[in-house]
């Protein structure tokens, strides 16, 4: 490892990766008009499932295919990640089913699944806690990794990080450069109009809720198969689901801004340990741990209230418009509401 600053920044990218993935999954779902509030529970449940599946796959590969543990690790991680995605999609489908087909409150079902997911994961996963299992290791991306600074920060990461970059770009491409994306956004903004144009609103909502849920499941796998190095009880990723949900709002449902939001939160978290090691700064450690939550309130305050608008008014006029375009954003108009065929 080279310069401490660069490796700290690279560490922030590593730690932010599951947040980026989870927030991107939720962005897809919410853009289609459904709130998957269960993120915190979904992530924990899929992290557990991903680890257990990967662990079992590795055992099977070792005993029946005669591979060594390191040889089996790569394939096992991929199988585990798929398992986690299936679990994430199933949880999301439950929300889609209860809100679209059974007309229940999305928030209520999502909240129940938040608690249930965590408890279920702890109950089912007790025997797999703290055992060494397959992990994915960082691999340098050829050429890109050699770029000074940028390469060291972004391209000497694990596969999950590379997937997260592709995911952000892919989501942006889907939203704003494809016909499917146009339909997706129409379903979340003005479902009646979309329906009138022949778009199958509820079918698309099912689809994108499941897709978003699968991506959230992948975030769970990124925790247990990479960033948090295995499965523990209590789950080491608890609470991050809520942060991911807040990042979606902070990011204004736009993939690139969501990405920046995730890096910002991860950076703030690492600040707590940096300050602790800095001589001369006397701040209570416990209070430092509260920083991400305070930031969560402040950022929501900025994007939700008129504060940002008032701030913009102070700036010179030519700057206002482009900045407003970047900073302001409203939720998908039909977010959380039901669509019923009249």
């Amino acid at each position: 490892m080279s310069d401490p600053l660069i490796s700290t920044l690279a560490g922030i990218v590593t730690n932010a990766t599951p947040l980026v993935i989870a927030a991107m999954g939720e962005t897809i779902t919410e853009r289609a008009g459904i709130v998957n509030l269960s993120l915190d529970g979904s992530i924990v449940l899929s992290a557990m499932s991903g680890f257990v599946v990967a662990y079992s796959a590795q055992q099977i590969l070792i005993t029946s295919a005669g591979m060594t543990a390191p040889e089996a690790a790569g394939l096992s991680v991929i199988i585990g990640a798929i398992g986690a995605m299936v679990v994430g999609a199933l949880v999301a489908l439950l929300i889609a089913f209860s809100s679209i087909s059974l007309r229940q409150d999305q928030v209520a079902v999502g909240f129940v699944l938040t608690l249930l997911g965590t408890d279920l994961a702890v109950f089912l996963g007790t025997n797999y806690a703290r055992i060494p299992g397959p992990q994915i290791l960082p691999t340098d991306l050829p050429l890109l990794a050699n770029i000074p600074v940028i390469g060291e920060i972004f391209f000497q990461q694990s596969g999950f990080a590379y997937v997260s970059y592709l995911l952000v770009f892919g989501t942006w491409w889907l939203f704003f450069r494809t016909r499917q994306g146009l339909s997706l956004r129409a379903v979340g903004e003005r479902p009646e109009a979309a329906f009138a144009r022949g778009i199958p609103v509820n079918r698309l909502r099912y689809l994108y809720t499941a897709l978003g849920g699968a991506v959230v499941g992948l975030a769970g796998a990124a925790y247990s198969l990479n960033v948090r190095a295995g499965w523990t009880v209590p789950p080491a990723m608890g609470g991050d689901g809520w942060i991911a949900l807040a990042i979606v709002i902070f990011g204004g449902w736009h993939p690139f801004r969501v990405l920046i939001g995730a890096y910002l939160f991860a950076g703030l978290r690492s600040l707590a340990s940096v300050i602790q090691r800095t001589p001369g700064i006397e701040i209570n450690i416990t209070l430092l741990n509260a920083a991400p939550w305070v930031l969560m309130i402040i950022t929501l305050l900025l994007v939700s209230s008129g504060a940002l608008e008032r701030l913009l008014q102070v700036l010179p006029r030519p700057l206002q418009k482009p900045l407003r375009g970047i900073l302001r954003s409203d939720p998908p108009a039909a977010l959380g509401t039901r669509f019923e065929r009249k």
Binding site: P4, G11, P235, M237, R269, S273, R277, N289
Partner: peptide
């Protein structure tokens, strides 16, 4: 901040271990 990880309350030990290594 505690004897073991309590998510949301303590710093995450996995992250902190990596940070110590990142710092040399």
């Amino acid at each position: 901040g505690f004897w073991f990880n309590i998510p949301g309350v303590t710093l995450d030990p996995t992250e902190e271990a990596n940070t110590l290594l990142n710092n040399g």
